[in-house]
Design a protein around this nucleic acid. Structure first.
Lengths: 123, 123
DNA sequence: ATTAGTGCAAATTGTTTGCAGTGCC
DNA sequence: GGCACTGCAAACAATTTGCACTAAT
């Protein structure tokens, strides 16, 4: 666990904004100016494998999130912001509804639409 | 609606395998040998805008699907196959559980884990 | 000393675009 | 003739990788 890796995790833990790799880079550079994008990607991958970070793949790109509890997201179609939602539904019911032979490791629920910030805009 | 576009739609309608753009290309070329990848992407985009095709963004790439009814998917973490699931849960309940100001246009539910094909394998 | 991790730059992959030519109304 | 659509190739963006160097145990 190097300084870089710690910083990345710290940045992710400190925000609810689900930053992209580039955004993580910018933020980490505020304390470690020399870091490279390659290291960000490498560390995000390791952290993901370690189960400390989650990757959210949207049509607009990949975003990262320090793992707390599994929760669904709301993705704004206009501004691409990702919002956390409280755990809403019976994941258990879902699991039971599944055909025989499927082993579920994650449930990823994503709603798309427009967020309050964008909802009022005309175009 | 050109021949190419029709073929692409036909290919997607004829399979439940959720092909990638490359796979669509290969399939379409069986009847229209000259088609290019650029046209596949262009047409997939148009078809998507027309609401005839759905794009499924997974960590492993984008897959395409002729739209029938909205349904959730199961993505195998080992082989990346995408499976259709029957509409399982109260989308309405979800919508109601959402904080004020969010307008939902699509609900995308994705389960990850291992599928029956892969479940028995050791590594 | 060894081993993992780094910065940098080049390579790779997936997708989009510009352009000149085609085919259909 | 005009306009949308094509194939091709070049452009692009996001992510990964190879390499020589550095830091920590």
């Amino acid at each position: 666990m190097t300084r870089q890796r710690q910083q990345i995790l710290a940045v992710l833990a400190a925000t609810r904004s689900h930053p992209s790799a580039e955004e993580v880079l910018a933020e980490v550079r505020r304390t470690l100016p020399g870091v490279s994008l390659g290291s960000i990607y490498r560390n995000l991958k390791r952290l993901r494998e370690a189960g400390l970070v989650r990757e959210i793949v949207t049509a607009e790109g990949r975003r990262y999130d320090a793992v707390t509890s599994p929760h669904p997201h709301f993705v704004c179609e206009r501004c691409s912001r990702v919002y956390d939602l409280p755990e809403p539904v019976a994941a258990e019911a879902l699991r039971r509804a599944l055909p025989e032979g499927f082993a579920v490791s994650q449930i990823h629920l994503e709603l798309k639409g427009t967020c309050p910030e964008c909802g009022s805009l005309t175009s």
